[in-house]
Simulated scan of single mutants.
Amino acid sequence: MPMNIRTLFPVTAFAIAAAIGFSGAAHAFDDKEKDDIGKIVREYLLAHPETLIEVQQAYEKKQAAERAEQAKTAVKDNHDAIFNASYDLAVGNPKGKVTVVEFFDYNCGYCKRAVGDMDAIIKANPEVRFVLKEFPILGQDSVDAHKVSNAVRLVAPEKYGDFHRALMSGEHANEARAIEVAKSLGVTEEALRAKMTEAPNDESVRDAYQLATKLGITGTPSYIIGNEAVFGAVGEEELAKKITSVEQCGKTVC
């Protein structure tokens, strides 16, 4: 993993501060003693720079563990909103034994590539229900594209899967392109615009934002499988392993 200097600096600074102040209750260091300790720490780090990487790795591991624990609690506390929201549509088996929830943005490059992972998983496992949770975070064009997507869901839900795949392929997504994709599938612009006015998708997107905050999701794609949040485009193989574990024991790690 590449070394993140911006993260290393505060972590190292904290370590130095801890070294200086660790026994403050027993002994208050004077300025000269603090300066001497600082020099010793500096000399050690210069002689052993690999320590910085070790500190960084330990810090990231701790953060990841805390994030995973936060997500597990949030999954438990928000189960229905995550897996069974009325405004989400699913592809695959609507009554599948295992549900995968994907937070996605139509302008996320990783999400575009992850469509292939989704389709491969659905093809290989007929017991997978794949919920698509609209999470536009990449600007106004994404928000506008998702408004059209929501209208497609309401006007022609049977076409939603094809619409999703088509909009995810190729060009930058915005309102105009989303409408063209929907029209190519036989949905009229008039019906879309009427539904966009009636139901602009604000509530479902707001709920997705709130859920993402609780789950610790900051980017797309992110997945919820069983009791775990999976961050990033981890690929078909990794997702399939977790799905298999959920089938066997109800959790991603049996």
Rank of each mutant, 00 (worst) to 15 (best):
F9D: 06
E50D: 15
E237A: 14
G109A: 11
F83A: 01
V253I: 03
A26D: 12
I224H: 00
M3D: 05
N227T: 02
D31Y: 02
N150V: 04
S149T: 08
A191I: 08
E33C: 06
D202P: 00
A124N: 09
S184K: 14
T213A: 15
L211S: 15
A18K: 10
N174L: 09
F135N: 03
V187Q: 04
E198K: 13
A173L: 03
I16W: 04
T7I: 13
V55M: 13
I217V: 08
F231K: 01
A173F: 02
F135E: 02
H164Q: 10
A85R: 15
A120V: 05
P126Q: 07
N93T: 04
Q63N: 11
A233Q: 05
T252I: 05
Q140F: 05
V128W: 02
F22I: 14
L185M: 09
A124S: 14
V91W: 03
P94A: 09
E66H: 07
Y223M: 00
G24I: 07
K159P: 01
P2W: 08
A124R: 12
L239D: 00
I179P: 07
E237M: 00
G219L: 04
R6V: 02
P157M: 12
N93M: 11
K214P: 04
D77A: 12
N107D: 04
E54I: 11
L89T: 11
P221M: 06
K159H: 08
Q210N: 15
P200E: 14
A90G: 07
A178S: 08
D80Y: 03
D31H: 04
L8S: 09
F130L: 02
L46T: 07
R153S: 07
E69L: 07
I243V: 10
V230H: 01
E189P: 09
S142V: 10
F135Q: 08
T197W: 07
E203G: 05
R206L: 11
F104N: 12
F103Q: 04
E180R: 12
K214S: 09
K241A: 01
P49V: 07
A212Y: 04
N78V: 10
A212R: 03
T252R: 06
C108T: 08
F22C: 13
A81I: 11
L185K: 10
D202R: 15
P200F: 08
N93Q: 02
A26R: 14
Y59N: 13
I217D: 03
V91G: 09
N93A: 02
A240H: 03
L45E: 13
E237P: 01
A173H: 05
C254R: 00
T213I: 01
E134C: 03
D141M: 12
K112I: 11
E69V: 01
K214C: 02
E134Q: 15
G109C: 03
A151K: 09
T12L: 14
A85G: 14
G170P: 03
G250K: 04
T220G: 05
G170N: 14
Q56G: 04
S245M: 01
E203P: 01
Q57F: 10
V101S: 03
K195H: 04
A240W: 00
K34A: 10
E236P: 00
D36I: 06
P200G: 09
K251A: 13
I53P: 00
C111V: 07
V253K: 03
I16E: 08
M168Q: 13
E247Q: 12
A74P: 11
R206V: 08
T244D: 06
I53L: 13
I179T: 10
V75P: 03
F231R: 11
G170Q: 09
I179F: 08
E247L: 14
D30R: 12
L8R: 06
